[in-house]
């Protein structure tokens, strides 16, 4: 190439050669520039966190309050209006009410949420007037059986809550304890179990 540069009389050849070397120069320059950017990251603080081993704060504080996690129901305050059931676009919520034929009292006998279907859209939470239905901050877990994903919130039939006019803030337990309790099968799975001994 160098000899071609010396002997060439044709200016177009010369410019072609010049372009050739300019290309090589640009190539190396731009690669080095990119490398410099990459290199500078050696001296910056990493932003990754080593979940779940090294957290500087507990997970509940890292996750914002509005996080839409697995649903929870604080049945003490459910007025059994069933709005959540009718709002859910994919019918994950099943509520059964039964009336005692003698005392004419109503009882919630079933409040199931199928979280295997739920898409955590939050429409049901939005319509619940008492805040009974809420998103917990729980987002992780596994289950070996899809049936475990139907959370049954009613153990013994409960009376619907009568909302007193005076109460402004209903002290709903949003800590996630209720959901975590229902998700026992989720989390109590022995780790590293290879075969299912069901």
């Amino acid at each position: 190439m160098v000899s071609a540069m010396e002997t060439a009389v044709n200016p177009s050849v010369r410019s072609a050669v010049r372009k050739y070397f300019k290309n090589i120069y640009q190539l190396f320059y731009s690669i080095l520039e990119g490398m410099a950017v990459t290199f500078s990251y050696l001296f910056r603080r990493p932003i990754t966190i080593q979940y779940p081993y090294k957290l500087d704060k507990p997970m509940d504080e890292i996750i914002p309050d509005r996080f839409r996690g697995i649903l929870g129901v604080d049945l003490r305050y459910c007025i059994a209006c069933r709005l959540c059931q009718t709002t859910c676009p994919i019918a994950c919520i099943a509520i059964d009410l039964e009336r005692n034929p003698e005392t004419k009292e109503r009882f919630i006998t079933r409040f199931d949420i199928d979280i295997s279907k739920c898409m955590f859209c939050g429409l049901c939470v939005e319509v619940c007037s008492t805040g009974t239905l809420h998103h917990s901050k729980i987002f992780d877990g596994t289950s070996r059986h899809v049936e475990n994903l139907v959370l049954e919130f009613v153990n013994t039939p409960v009376r619907p809550f009568i909302k007193p006019k005076s109460i402004e803030d209903i002290p709903v337990d949003r800590s996630g304890a209720i959901t975590r309790n229902k998700l026992k099968d989720f989390f109590d799975l022995p780790k590293f179990r290879l075969t299912d001994e069901a």
Binding site: N23, Q26, L27, S30, I31, E33, G34, A36, V37, T38
Partner: peptide, 12 residues
Amino acid sequence: DEYNRLISNNEI
């Protein structure tokens, strides 16, 4: 800008 230096201007 940093991104442009990293890749947008990269000759390859």
